[in-house]
């Protein structure tokens, strides 16, 4: 089983890296870019876990304890079942 954790800065938190990305894209002629927000993606491979709900609960705990800082960030968890190896 895999968990894909997406961590973004909360709305309203200044994201100077996102702004620099947007400026660079506009510099390349992509005038339609109104703004950019930069986040991060953490892919976790989970062993010994078969229940999606309990896996999600554990990953929630990981987010609270380490992966995200609730002062500035929010997170989104996707649990992906991986097909067993043949």
């Amino acid at each position: 089983m895999k968990a894909i954790v997406r961590i973004d800065l909360k709305q309203g938190v200044l994201d100077p890296q996102g702004q620099a990305v947007a400026n660079a894209l506009r510099g390349l002629g992509f005038d339609e870019v109104a703004s950019a927000r930069q986040g991060k993606l953490i892919e976790l491979e989970l062993t010994g876990e078969t229940n999606v709900d309990s896996a999600r609960a554990r990953v929630e705990e990981m987010c609270r304890k380490l992966l995200a800082n609730p002062v500035i960030e929010r997170y989104h968890i996707d649990i992906v079942a991986v097909a067993p190896a043949e």
Binding site: P16, V71, I72
Partner: peptide, 10 residues
Amino acid sequence: PGALLRNAGL
């Protein structure tokens, strides 16, 4: 309390 983010001027 609070957090420290990337410098505004990068």
